[in-house]
Structure formats: structure tokens, C-alpha cells
Design a protein around this nucleic acid. Structure first.
Lengths: 342, 342
DNA sequence: ATGAAAGCGCTAACAC
DNA sequence: GTGTTAGCGCTTTCAT
């Protein structure tokens, strides 16, 4: 059988101080002499002391639990989000609770029930739940603090961590420019999504910075679907002159572009370079593989944990959490190459 | 701001009893008159009372946290396991904690650290961590109760929930027999895996029950890999007489069989029926789609939660947890059909 | 069958 | 700077 876990009092006795001083050291509160801090830490280490979460919760109102709420069709995305969150949680002494939501049964009652039993210091929401009004309302009603990952709407409603879509689109466009492309088509995303305008903005900025102007017909509407990418590509490739590269606002549309291109007799990347966005699993299955932008999912959820934990640090006033914009990763693969005719 | 959460005392006042009686009702302890039970429950419901987990933990030593530890390459498997576990956790008032392990950094120190901070009522282990000796030792050292899902080795070491491989293999064989097959080849799995012999046993049992004898050359070795399936199929299909169906001990090998068959000029299922095991994602992507056995992953993790929760029910002596064998699902798809020549 | 008292391990106010 | 005194909300004794 196990020996009884050491408590804060055991540490206090071993260090020759009052147990309150131990508490101060553990919580990094000010007003403890360096010498005592060292003694306390040494004693804690020697005893293998681990604070009792339940007691800290009961007395201090902090559960040291972080919740991850999701309702995402992509298992891979969830896996990355969990990994990133748990890694940071371990560093901060928190535990990660998962709360998968099944859009089917998410009645208001179910949500309220889940939330009333949930006792976390903060909740992380991934897309698309992070944009679900009913969920957000339930969480706010329950008075739980939350951080959204890559939200699409209502950016002022709550703190979030997101990828810098503008910079990423800018960078991806520069990749095409560096390859030698000058005439680049762009396919917009679904108009309801916030990312749509940000990606367009990044594209235009890079083009402008390169001293290029973009003809209006080079910018086609899309809807983030394979079909919409195909249709847009047909339009872009049918005119009297055609672009040497197409930047689709996501991978699904980029795949549609590749399909339309091959049907029209153009080879990728020989006759046409194609770039996507998201690095979805399909991006690697396509042939040639898609050049795209990968979201830093693990880093985003890790950052979300940080934001939540910091917001509840001892002696912290309840001030608003600042949003964070994280870097992305440009994945250059086979679907982009220098244009044949300069 | 939120109103203060109702406590057990509020419920007691509302119900006109002592708060200890409320505690008894909530914990389903004996010795409370039915009338009082009803009154307490009504009061609790009216106040929207939810027990404080931290307080229960501190006083009673139960955290109402269940941990799910995994290190599994298959995101889909993990997703199902999580869904099944969380569903049951919600019913029992528990929270689910995830502990992904990264085989790379699982030093003994890391494991001990993780486990010392983990404060759960029980741990669920999925394959392959559930067969990792270092992990099991660390958990036992930490004195944490655990249940394994689909373990492969050391079945007596700790309670587990598993699929009945023998029955499933038996059933899948019967499916082939019912289709009219009499000469069936079998490809064994990797010799190190416990499932290997169980699946063979099920196959042989069904054949025997059908009054058939199996020639030794109809049973080929394999290693659960695509290549080993291919090689085994080449052997099975090259002899003077060939089976009309092949039962591979997992999907990867079944896919190898299909590949070898088409290379040898046999069509599936026209000339040869092929059955696999596992219902891996690839089983649906193949053409024709694979007839196979699906493991009840979600049901298994739900059962694991049950076993853990029941073991800690109030007034429960610490008696051993009984293992559970769960049903499987036979997924009949296009790769199996009646034989051409009877 | 019910209630009263004690205390789980810690943090939050206060003292000194 | 450091220690003391109260609880947090519940379960556990132990009375009755």
C-alpha cells in the first residue's frame, strides 16, 4: 500500500516554518525571504509533496481543471488540439477535461446540465463550436471563462487565439511571386466566414507590395467547397488570357481547381500552379500534393491554456484577456512550380 | 453575476431535514425513509443543486474524475473511445480527463510525474499503452486503479474489457459458410499478439461445427501487415486447388490479399471472397469495400467507466473487478459473395 | 432512521 | 515578512 501523501503541514514541519509560508511559496506569492523559499522547496521535493487539487479548489476556488470543448468532424484536428493543450497543462499543473459535443443532442438543457457539472478554471472552444451562439450563450450563462480557437464571427465577444490569416495569405502569395508568377487568380471563400476577407486581404497586399495590380476578373467567388473551386477555375481558365497560378482560399477548392485544370487539359504544376489553405488530410492525398498553409493547432490550444491560466493567477485582477495571433506554416509541395512562360 | 451555487445545507433547509440526510440521499445510502428521500430530491431539483466535486473529493476521497490514457496512432479509435467514455461519465456524474502519452518522452520520471499529479478514481488504458509494461508498473506504483481495453498480454494482471475475438471470428466464418463457401483459407496475425490465436480458434470452431476439416496448407502465417497478407495470398492462390474465400486476421492483410488476387487475375468477390477484421478506415476506402468485424470501441470504453465507477461506489468493499467481454459487429460489405462454382 | 460534531488540505482574510 | 484563525462543502465517525 501507498504511504500517506505528504501534506502542506508535513512540508512546513520539515522546513521549520508555518504551513502558511509553504502555501505562499507554492503560490509564488510575494513576501517570503529567499532563504525560506529555498528551504520550503527543498523540503517539498524531499517529501515528494504534490498539492491536493481538491483542497486548493475548495479553499481557493480554483479547480486546476481546463476544459476542451469540441464538436469537430476532424479527428486529426482534435488530436492536435488535445496534445497542445495537455502539454501546457502539465507544465502549469492543470488537468485537461474533454467535452465532446454532439450537435445532434445539444439542446439547451443538455448544455446547461453539462456546464453545471463542469468545474473548470476555463474552457477552450475549437471551431465550429466556438461560433455556435447557443453554446456561447450557455457558457456565458454558466459564468465560465472561455477562450476560442480560430473563431470566425463575433470576434469582440470573447478572447481568442487565431492564426494570422492575412499574413499567411500574404506569405503564400509571395511564395507564388518568388516562383516567378505574375498573373495569379484568387478564389474567395464562403462569404459568411471571417477568414474569407482576411485571406483576400493578404493576397492583395502581397500583390500590391510586388507592384502588381489585380484585374477584377482574376478574383472569383467561392464557397469553400470542391465544386465551387472547380467552377471558379473553369471561369479563370476559360478567358482569352489565363493566370499561371491560382490561389484557392482553402484546400477543398484547390482540389476542385486541380480537377478542373486536368479536365481542361492543363497539367499541374506544369501549366498551372495551385495553392490551397488549411493543410487538410486531402492535401497530401492529392496528386501532385498541395502547397498550402498549415494552422498551428497545437500551439493555438497551448496558448489558450496559457491565457486561461494566467487570467486566474493568484493576485491577478480580473482584467480582460488579450487575444493572440499565432504564426502559421507554409507547406510547399508539388502543386506549385515556376511558370513555363515568363 | 451568478447567484451563489446552492449547497447541501440549502437543500437541507428547503427539505426540512439535516444536511446529513441530504448527503445520504445523494449517495444512495440506506436508512432514509422514502418520504424524506422524495422531499430531498424535490428540494435539490428545485434549487438546481449540483454537488461540489472538490468538497466530495476532499472529504470522501473520491475525485469523480476518470482518466483516459492513450498512445494510439489512430485518431478515429481515440475519438470513439473518448465519446463512449464521456457519455457514460456524464450519466454517472464524472468528468473525463485525457492523458495522451507520447512514447518518445515516456521516461519513467515523466510517467511518475504525470501520475502523481493525476487525481482520478480510475484510469482507462487503450491499446497499445495497455500492454506497455513500463506504463503499467508506473500506474501500479502510483496505486491507481485501472481497466484495460482490448489488452493483448498479461490478461490476469488487471481487469479489462475486450471484444470476444473467438466469437467474432466464428461469426465471420459462418458468414462465409452461409454464403456457400466450403474451402476457406485463413491468414493468421502476428504471433506476438494474443488476438492471433483467438481469431484462429474462432475460425476453426466454425469450420468444425459445419462439419468441415481444414487442410494445414489452408492456414498461412501472417504479421498483420499488408505485405504479409499479400504473400500469404500468393501461397494460397498458387496451389493446384485454391480456396474460394480468404479470411485474413485483420484488414491490412485483407487488403494485401485483394491486391495479390487482382494481380493474379482473380476478381473480388467474383472469383474470391475476402474478409478482414477491425473495420479500419481503409476497409471502406478499398474497392470493393471490405467485409469485416468492427470492434465496439465506444461501448468498451463506456463499460470501462462503469467498472471503475462501480468499484468505488459507496459501501463497496474493495473486491476485484470482473472482466467484460463485449459483442462485436459484423459488417458485411462488397468483398464477400457466394462462390461461383459450388 | 436521523442528527451533531469533527475534519479532509488548503487559501483567505486578518493579525503580529 | 511571518504566523493565526476561519472557513470552503462535503463525508466520516459517532451519538441518539
Amino acid at each position: 500500500m501507498e504511504k500517506r501523501q505528504a501534506t502542506i503541514k508535513d512540508v512546513a514541519v520539515a522546513a521549520g516554518v508555518s504551513f502558511k509560508t509553504v502555501s505562499r511559496v507554492l503560490n509564488q506569492e510575494p513576501n517570503v525571504r529567499q532563504e525560506l523559499q529555498d528551504r520550503v522547496r527543498a523540503a517539498a521535493a524531499a517529501l515528494g509533496y504534490v498539492p491536493n487539487i481538491a483542497a486548493r479548489d475548495l479553499a481557493g476556488g480554483r479547480s486546476f481543471l481546463i476544459g476542451l470543448m469540441f464538436d469537430n468532424p476532424s479527428e486529426a484536428y482534435i488530436g492536435q488540439a488535445q496534445t497542445g493543450a495537455i502539454t501546457r497543462c502539465r507544465e502549469t499543473g492543470h488537468l485537461l477535461i474533454v467535452e465532446p459535443l454532439d450537435s445532434a443532442d445539444d439542446t439547451q438543457r443538455t448544455l446547461d446540465s453539462i456546464l453545471s457539472h463542469l468545474r473548470v478554471d476555463g474552457l477552450i472552444l475549437t471551431p465550429p463550436v466556438c461560433d455556435n451562439p447557443m453554446v456561447l450563450e450557455a457558457i456565458e450563462r454558466a459564468g465560465v471563462r472561455y477562450v476560442r480557437i480560430g473563431p470566425d464571427r463575433d470576434l469582440d465577444r470573447a478572447p481568442f487565439v487565431a492564426m494570422d490569416d492575412v499574413a499567411a495569405a500574404c506569405d503564400l502569395t509571395r511564395h507564388l511571386l518568388d516562383l516567378g508568377h505574375r498573373d495569379i487568380g484568387f478564389i474567395k471563400g464562403h462569404p459568411d466566414h471571417g477568414a474569407t476577407s482576411r485571406r483576400l486581404e493578404g493576397f492583395l497586399r502581397a500583390m500590391t507590395e510586388a507592384g502588381l495590380t489585380v484585374a477584377p476578373e482574376r478574383i472569383q467567388p467561392g464557397a469553400f467547397s470542391f465544386e465551387s473551386g472547380m467552377e471558379a477555375a473553369e471561369t479563370l481558365l476559360s478567358g482569352p488570357s489565363r493566370p499561371t497560378a491560382i490561389f484557392a482560399s482553402n484546400d477543398d477548392m484547390a482540389l476542385g481547381v486541380m480537377s478542373a485544370a486536368s479536365r481542361a487539359g492543363f497539367s499541374v504544376p506544369g501549366d498551372l500552379s495551385v495553392a490551397g489553405f488549411d493543410d487538410s488530410p486531402a492535401a497530401q492525398m492529392a496528386w501532385p500534393q498541395l502547397t498550402t498553409i498549415r494552422q498551428p493547432v497545437a500551439a493555438m490550444s497551448a496558448a489558450a491554456v496559457d491565457m486561461l491560466v494566467e487570467a486566474r493567477a493568484p493576485g491577478r485582477v480580473r482584467e480582460p484577456i488579450a487575444n493572440r495571433w499565432l504564426g502559421y506554416q507554409l507547406i510547399a509541395r508539388g502543386s506549385t512550380a515556376p511558370p513555363k512562360r515568363p
